[in-house]
Every structure is written in structure tokens, then in C-alpha cells.
Design a protein around this nucleic acid. Structure first.
Lengths: 191, 191
DNA sequence: GTCAATCTTGACGATGATGTCAAGAATGAT
DNA sequence: ATCATTCTTGACATCATCGTCAAGATTGAC
């Protein structure tokens, strides 16, 4: 069994994403990845180099899915509806699984195991892109809220989503998160 | 040099707090604590049992300081002023030091190294108390905003503070955090 | 069919952390 | 002054993880 790669890379990365999501970059070990993927540790090292390289691939896959879902949820003419959809989506996203997996981006941002700048950069990228996505939705919806205004508000909204992720980790239930998000949207979106 | 404790417990805990704040519960090792406090590892084990016990003491010290400062900052008749003070305080709190230490509570909430329920419980306690503190401020300031309304908003505000802590970790500057907080207060407090 | 390339496998060494312990030392009580 | 108590110290055993590597195996190209 050798000579050519014995595993499907996409599957391995998808499985690795699941492991990282459940355990976090720091706590997931190469052994965890090997066990979950069925690929030996040595093969993983041979194929990817190290854990962080695997993480980066998995994280890219994750952000792709996430931003796509966010864009879809936000795609409504009415800003309030868009935001409600969006919050529903991310709350389900972070409270899914048992135990809940939480938000991978937030967890990664807080993970001190970040020696390389690369990981940090990716986190900033997602947050920045999310901010832009939301900013566009806001300026498109409310003609009166344009430019700097929408951008500032977009950042506030992104910040709030990070807060929800922390609250989830602190033990708040999906229902509680939803209530907070609803209150937030009502207050901020000025609906 | 023995027979009686050779170190000042308060000083040791204060120093330990500094270490935990900079490195996090997970990443701070007993060796780090020993080096920072000047107390040998063995003595620390003898005196406290294990790392988590030391952390709990340090964290209690931290939350005491933090909630006191929060209460002081929030002690204003005008809700908007109270909130602005409060956000100023926590933003300085989390961006202080070089590199910035971030928010210990948030970091701890995300730290997966939490096997014991105790740590998690303390985190929930701080957040809960903070929520109450803010709730009181809100109901006291705005007569029209009472009961459930103030409580819901208080939780939204606590959530937002957690978001700021994450954004700080993601690399946002003190200035950026302040801008977001200001936008948030303007929008939410309905000032 | 042969061979070079490359993947797989299991073992190895290094490292860093945890928690324990026995021996030594100094204090406070009697 | 003596002694039990208790702290300190350094060493020890254990464990988990990382990253490397040589040997074996298999494939695809020629």
C-alpha cells in the first residue's frame, strides 16, 4: 500500500476540520487527526508538513463555507430580515453538535498556540470579509446609511457575533443567544 | 529556610495572576509560575495543590478588581455616560501591557483546558454579576426601561464586551475598539 | 519487466509538563 | 533545649506530543 497517496485529500481535510472544530487548533493532536482520518501520523507529516499546515487547509475550507452561508443569509433587501437570518445562521453554526462545537474562528483567535502569523492573518481575513459582507448589506438596504456609517455599524455587528461565540462557550444556550441577538438587532438596526 | 512559609501568599497570587493573564490558564506552566514568583515548583504544589487551585485564587482576585472597577465606571445617573465610562475601562483593561494581555475572563472561557467545572463556574459568575451591574445601571437611569427590558439589554452589552475582547485578540487596536464601542453605545443606548 | 520515485509504517529520540517524594532545614511550642 | 511540625529543595517517574527516519511496499513510467 504505497507509491501513491492512499487517501483522499479532501476527505482528510474535511475530517481534520471536524477535529479542529471540536478540539481547537491547540488541543487537537496529530494523533487525533490520524485516528479520525485513518491516516497514520507519519503519512500526515509526509503529506502536509505539520499540524498548522493541515489546519490552514481545513480553516480555508471552513471560511469558504461560512462566508458563503453568511452571504446567502444576508441576501435580503430588508436589513433587519437580513440580520435576523444571519444571526440565526451563526447561532446554529456555533451551537451545533453535542457537545456544541462553538465558533472555530473565535476559538482560533483566542488560541495562544499561534506562533505563526499565518493563522492570525486568516482570522483577520475572515472577520474583515464578514465585515464587508455586512457593510454591503447595510448600505444596500438603507439608502440613508451609507459609507463610513454602514462600515462602523458592520464592525459593531461582527464584534457582537464574536461576543455570541464567547457566550456560547461560557455556557449560554441556543435560546439565550437567540434572544440576545434579537434584542441586539432590534436595538441596533433601529427597526 | 523552612519550617514556615517563606513567601507572601498575596504577592504570589498577584504575580500568578499576572502570569495567567499574559499566558492563559492553559499555557502558563508551573515552571512559569515558579520563575515569576521565585517560589519553587514543589513549594507551590505543597501550598496549593495544583495549577488550577492557584488559578482560582488568582482569578478571584481578578474578578474582585474587575467588578469593582466596573461598578465604579457604571456609577453615573446618565446611562450613556455610564456605558461610555464602562467601555473605556474595559478597553484599557484589555489593551494594557505590551503585548496587550487581553481579557482574562474571555480567554479563560475559551480555554479548552477546563476539565473542572469550577473554572467554568467562575466565568459564568463574573459574566452574571457584570450583567446585573449593568442591568441596575440601566433601570436606574431610564425609568422607562425596566425589568426584563433592562436585563435583556444588559446581556446584550455583556455580550458585546466579550466581542471586543475577541476583536482585541484578533489584532484590533485600542482606537478601533473604542470606535466600535462608541458606535455601539450610540446605537443601543438610543442616545 | 525493470526501476526510480514516493508513500506508508513503526520505531526512535527529544522535549516539556505534571505530580510525587524523600531528605534536609528551620521554626515554634513545650 | 528538644522535638514535632511543616516548609523547601532537587530528583524522580510518568506521560503526551512532536518531528524524524530508515526500511519496506507499491505504483507508474519507460
Amino acid at each position: 500500500m504505497a507509491g501513491v497517496r492512499q487517501f483522499n485529500e479532501d476527505e482528510v481535510i474535511a475530517t481534520a476540520l471536524d477535529v479542529f472544530w471540536r478540539k481547537g487548533l491547540r488541543d487537537a493532536t496529530m494523533q487525533d487527526l490520524a485516528a479520525a482520518t485513518g491516516v497514520q501520523r507519519g503519512s500526515l507529516y509526509n503529506a502536509y508538513g505539520d499540524k498548522e499546515a493541515i489546519f490552514l487547509r481545513a480553516f480555508d475550507q471552513y471560511t469558504g463555507q461560512f462566508l458563503e452561508a453568511a452571504g446567502y443569509a444576508l441576501d435580503h433587501a430588508d436589513a433587519a430580515t437580513a440580520l435576523r437570518n444571519f444571526f440565526d445562521m451563526i447561532i446554529v453554526n456555533m451551537t451545533d453538535g453535542s457537545p456544541a462545537r462553538g465558533c472555530l474562528t473565535t476559538r482560533t483567535a483566542l488560541d495562544a498556540a499561534i506562533s505563526s502569523t499565518e493563522v492570525r492573518q486568516r482570522v483577520q481575513d475572515v472577520l474583515g470579509r464578514l465585515e464587508q459582507l455586512i457593510g454591503k448589506t447595510l448600505s444596500a438596504a438603507h439608502g440613508r446609511r451609507r459609507g463610513a456609517d454602514a462600515n462602523r455599524l458592520a464592525r459593531v455587528i461582527v464584534t457582537f457575533t464574536r461576543g455570541l461565540a464567547v457566550m456560547e462557550r461560557a455556557g449560554y444556550s441556543r435560546k439565550q443567544l437567540r434572544e440576545s441577538a434579537a434584542t441586539f438587532v432590534d436595538a441596533v438596526a433601529g427597526v
